[in-house]
């Protein structure tokens, strides 16, 4: 019982950290910091999954934690960093419009997510039921991050962060997804990053920049 109580406290802290990182992603201007934040988000995800696995004694979840560690903390940040270096985009910082207003919008999203999650968390019986709201908020915030960005890499990171949120939600609500699905998603992510990386090169070839507003000129007149 005592063990479980401590685990709950720790999980709450981790969930709060997750939320915090989403806000940091929303407000940071630098590409490389965005990647670092993504790495931290993956680390938190790994820790919390491992904790749940430990508390519930589920071997499956250990596997998924290990997968998280490998993919989201080590592989993807490495690939993204490599991409940024190859593209020479380290210095391509964003010009964000009115950060306080963006944060306020983010806050409203959090309220929405928390409000929506309240009835769900009553139904869920897992020890992480309180964090469903946070997972939902992370998804929405990552979506907002994607909307607010104009650089291609930043958008991809937003997309990846959204997947983190989904994963977190799954872990909170149902002790994770079945192994097959998880493996599939992991593979999807890897492939997506590779394909998008190829796209980046193409976009830069074409427009000499990774700014996505150049794509607006592709519409038919």
């Amino acid at each position: 019982m005592l063990k479980s109580h401590f685990v709950i406290e720790l999980l709450k802290l981790l969930a709060a950290g997750m939320l915090l990182i989403s806000f940091a992603m929303l407000s940071t201007r630098r590409i490389q910091r965005l990647i670092t934040l993504y790495m931290w988000q993956g680390a938190i995800l790994f820790l919390s999954t491992a904790l749940v696995a430990y508390d519930a004694g589920l071997t499956e979840l250990y596997f998924s934690a290990a997968l998280t560690l490998l993919l989201k903390v080590i592989a993807l940040p490495f690939i993204l960093n490599w991409l940024v270096r190859r593209l020479g985009a380290q210095r391509e910082n964003e010009r964000l419009a009115h950060i306080p207003a963006t944060m306020l919008a983010g806050l409203l999203l959090v309220i929405l997510a928390f409000g929506l999650a309240q009835p769900i968390s009553v139904l869920a019986a897992t020890i992480m039921r309180h964090t469903i709201g946070i997972a939902l908020a992370v998804i929405l915030l990552s979506f907002l991050t994607m909307i607010m960005r104009r650089k291609a890499i930043a958008q991809v990171i937003g997309f990846l962060a959204m997947e983190n949120g989904l994963f977190f939600a799954a872990a909170s609500a149902t002790y994770g997804m079945p192994m097959v699905i998880e493996l599939g998603i992991a593979l999807d992510l890897l492939v997506a990053v590779f394909i998008l990386g190829i796209f980046f090169f193409q976009i830069r070839e074409q427009f000499d920049s990774l700014d996505l507003h150049h794509l607006e000129s592709l519409k038919e007149e």
Binding site: L107, I111, L112, F114, G115, Q118
Partner: peptide, 10 residues
């Protein structure tokens, strides 16, 4: 009321 109890403190 959900939402209200979170929004109004703001």
């Amino acid at each position: 009321h959900t939402f209200v109890n979170m929004l109004v403190p703001l």
